[in-house]
Write a protein that binds this DNA or RNA. Structure first.
Lengths: 332, 332
DNA sequence: GCAGTTTGCTGTATCGATTCAGAAAAGGCA
DNA sequence: TGCCTTTTCTGAATCGATACAGCAAACTGC
């Protein structure tokens, strides 16, 4: 007897297919009495409503937006989750599904190519030309997050440089001279990493610090990485009096290393993070860090990709230094 | 001039539509020479490959599985993320998209109903009859996670009761008598909550503890909640010597409260968590907790829903007590 | 009571691909 | 060379819905 479709329901009620379709999608196009009757019949027949695939084909929209990021990485980083939450929030509000897309697959059977999306948010991911081309050809709106976008796509980012500069200035104002920078990076540098570095450097230069600065670029990403890296750094003879960590997770790692070595924060070592993630306040002492609104970033990205926010080009969200208890004047 | 479709490419090359389709989906059905020619022409024309919506309609599969959980909650809970990661892992491996579905929307425009999925994983969410019915009618395979499933769907869970019992026994063996249980719950009790409670109780009863047990059920969920709740608990005259927290986040909250009140863990207060989430090891002292493999749980759920794991009915994953440094013998 | 607008419903064309039975060409074997 | 299998490609039928023009019937207003 085949599947139950609009047709089946239409025949049962004795109306046309169009009318049944309207019962679902345009209630104002038919009398509410008839609509009730149709819905009742549908329920009776076990019809679950218009088939999404068919509907999607005909309408040309899918009711879903994608979020592209190395999925496994994505769910590992607490700060990133806030971004996800922001995107999810807009999706829920708009009645859209949120599709997580991960790594490109080798065989040309890329998930991105076989999923239909009304838009895509690209986060911290270097995209293959293949994919880039695909998106253009298919005409899917794309918004990039936290990326330098000389490209054709609009983007959302934060004032990385300004935030970083504020963090550096804070330490300099406290009298620190020998400062270490703990660079984030899980393979290659992202745009945001370079920006932060530029922000720190601006203040170092302005203060005439040069030789005293230690740049540690150990490809660290997680708290555990940070701890390992900081352990080496802090074990040196002439250790820094302050550390600028490029994420709160890394900063937490520095705390761990300091605790192990018996170095007191902030008395003997000042630490500044970046992100103002949940970690910042659960750690002890509470972390001085650069606040950014991850969640809002997600919201803005989603709104932009949906055309709800029509600000063209790049949107830059502000950052600001949040001074807590992990920084103190440099010991004399 | 219209969109570019299989047809356009077929005409350009001078073959039939079917052949072009085969070039994409069944390379073995045509000579590789022709295939190359077709792919080249497609690229030339700016054809991005078969349209997912059309393909999905015709084939009857969507290449995506859904994960149903209050999205906002989902991305907030660190332990839950591991589940997500497990599901994502299998999806990536299988070339499937992962769709996050959130709250049911009021207007009958439920995302679940308008998204086409090859399967659905339901996590910690009481489902409306509406939705339940929908899934049945549409014949979408469903797997439930962490739920008592008297229902028609297979499920994946953990040995909640055994784990909880082990935790309770551990405290009892250490000589604790006055033990508080910090119940998790963000509104209503889930099955897992009841199971854990039953596990604790079993050991309390076995040890003949009764009056000494304090059950604190304050609808707590986050670390901050846990701290508030624990603050009240620990401020009482005759405070417990040990706390069984139903999650590591809550346990961390207990740590926070204890620190505030100057109560030393574990000397003056033993704390046991549940989950063995990342928090357990970043907290100080490291938390004694009940380990469960969230990630594996996600993997198993995904495999089950895809029919890759054909174990019927309920799959129960083991739990085990991990003794760290947050528990010590009761002070005499 | 009649022209003019609304309301309510129908029919047909289409969205873009996949499938499967089969035709034509090519190869294998004696 | 002739018969049989294999390879390579084609055509028609379908998947299930939605949009839009159009046609009755039912209301307006004067």
């Amino acid at each position: 007897m085949g599947r139950i479709t609009l047709q089946t329901v239409a025949e049962r009620v004795g109306v046309s297919r169009s009318t049944v379709s309207n019962a679902y999608n345009r209630p104002d196009q038919l009398s509410s009495e008839l609509r009730e009757r149709i819905l009742a019949a549908a329920d009776d027949l076990g019809y679950a409503g218009p088939d999404p695939a068919a509907s999607s084909l005909r309408r040309g929209v899918s009711g879903a937006i994608g979020l592209l990021q190395g999925v496994l990485w994505a769910v590992t980083d607490p700060a990133n989750l806030l971004l996800l939450a922001g995107v999810a929030e807009v999706c829920e509000e708009q009645g859209l599904a949120l599709v997580l897309i991960g790594q490109e697959r080798p065989e040309g059977a890329d998930v991105l190519a076989t999923t239909n999306l009304d838009g895509l948010i690209v986060h911290c991911e270097t995209m293959s030309d293949q994919r880039r081309r695909h998106l253009e050809v298919r005409g899917i709106p794309v918004v990039e997050v936290d990326r330098d976008t000389d490209t054709r796509w609009p983007s959302v980012g934060i004032d990385e440089r300004g935030g970083a500069a504020a963090a550096a200035r804070h330490l300099i104002d406290l009298g620190h001279r020998r400062i270490a920078v703990l660079v984030i990076g899980d393979g290659d540098h992202h745009w945001s990493t370079d920006e932060r570095l530029a922000g720190y450097r601006r203040e170092f230069d302005r203060a005439g610090l040069g030789d005293e600065i230690i740049i540690v670029d150990d490809q660290v990403h997680t708290r555990a990485d940070g701890r390992a890296s900081a352990a080496r750094l802090l074990a040196s003879d002439h250790r820094p009096t302050a550390v600028l960590a490029m994420s709160d997770e890394l900063a937490a790692g520095v705390f761990d290393a300091a605790a192990e070595l018996g170095i007191r924060v902030p008395d003997e070592l000042s630490v500044v993070g970046f992100d103002d993630a949940p970690t910042a306040t659960t750690v002890s002492p509470p972390l001085t860090t650069v606040f950014q609104d991850h969640r809002e970033k997600g919201r803005v990205a989603a709104r932009k990709v949906l055309g709800l926010d029509t600000t063209p080009g790049v949107t830059i969200l502000p950052t600001r230094l949040v001074v807590r208890e992990s920084t103190a004047p440099a010991a004399v």
